[in-house]
Amino acid sequence: METFEITTKIKFGKGALEYLESLKGKRVFIVTDPFMVKSGMINKITERLQDGNYEVFSEVVPDPPMELVTKGVEAVLGFKPNTMIALGGGSSIDAAKAIMDFSKKIGNLNDMRFIAIPTTSGTGSEVTSFAVITDQQKGVKYPLVSDSLLPDVAILEPELVKSVPAAIVADTGMDVLTHAVEAYVSTKATDFSDALAEKAVELVFEYLRRSYESAEDMEAKEKMHNASCLAGIAFNLASLGINHAIAHNIGGKLHIPHGRTNALLLPYVIEFNAHIDGFNPKEYTVAAKKYANLAKLIGIQGVNTRALVKNFVAEIIKLQKLMKMPMSLKECNVTTESIQEFKQDIAKGALEDACILTNPRVATTGDVLEIIHQITS
């Protein structure tokens, strides 16, 4: 028996931030990053907290380390809020999840509500039971997985993503696609997660380029924000795969933005998982058939499953190039020396990553090293 359940209440569309007006009289702790304060984005939140009974913790950095979480927990225990708001991209929401979870356990704050407000359309963290925290000394990213990390409410306000720079739109948009595609071929995929993943893929191919090309295209911004959330629910149900397993470890060692790393890997991971060597295989893998189905879903033609998979990969690469994304580690300014130094550690970490457990094809160290080689130059 399996269960389909969405714990998080989702407020979406223009004006979604009006929900915050219901927090009047609450003690609110806001977790965010310095840019949200400097840019004035934080005011869109605080102006709706009419009685001003809030505290802002704005020290979140990319790849949040445990030391930051500890500092945030100390601040929460001092303020004793009954509501926590996470405002920002994946790093802010992930940091807030860890701060919230530890604060509840340590400070007897079990009734504290958790609201996530994403300002990028990528991680889907506002609806997942995942968070990623970094051990800076070891250069390792640790995924935290627990239903206790799920926000009570997610607010998808398209106005908050209007000013995101085009390069970040590209990175985060490809993160959405990777989440949806990996969830779709996961060994834990179900009809329910598939429906969400399929819709996310359709939205990405229809709206990501538009969102990249125009900050004023609010339809595209809203649709990509929705796609991110849909893909997040899909992978929260079905988990991910080798793409994220490798990306977590590349990010920890080589410090490339997560969405960009996922984009580099995705074409080669699809080829690996589809396992379509040779022109006339006797039987295609389940993953190959599902990739082919995604291709048909977005209007790609192909004479057989192999052709459809190849054309799906080509369409992904075309989208990356249209958005002027780097196509190799070297184009991300990673030196050959760094790749040689860390590739064994990256491969080892990937094979130990929880995400690899639901990958549709079992991978060896050699397989991971070959994928890393393919994205090197």
Rank of each mutant, 00 (worst) to 15 (best):
L87I: 11
A98K: 02
L144A: 05
G124N: 00
F342Y: 13
H255W: 04
S214Y: 09
A288W: 07
K221M: 10
L297F: 01
M325H: 08
H179N: 14
A354P: 12
T70C: 08
M41C: 08
T358I: 09
E67C: 13
K162I: 10
T8S: 07
L156Q: 02
E159I: 10
S129T: 06
S186A: 10
I42E: 08
V181K: 03
S214A: 08
I250C: 01
E341P: 03
G139E: 13
K253T: 00
M1A: 13
K343V: 08
G251P: 01
L109S: 01
P158E: 10
F102T: 07
S58N: 07
L266Y: 00
V161L: 03
P65D: 07
T83G: 01
K24F: 13
K24L: 07
H179M: 10
E157G: 01
N82D: 15
A167Q: 10
P257I: 10
L17V: 03
H275L: 05
F279I: 13
I256F: 06
V334L: 08
E18D: 15
F102K: 13
Q136W: 05
K141V: 11
I371F: 11
G124F: 00
T83E: 15
F192N: 12
E341V: 14
F57G: 01
T119D: 11
H179S: 07
M323E: 08
G241M: 08
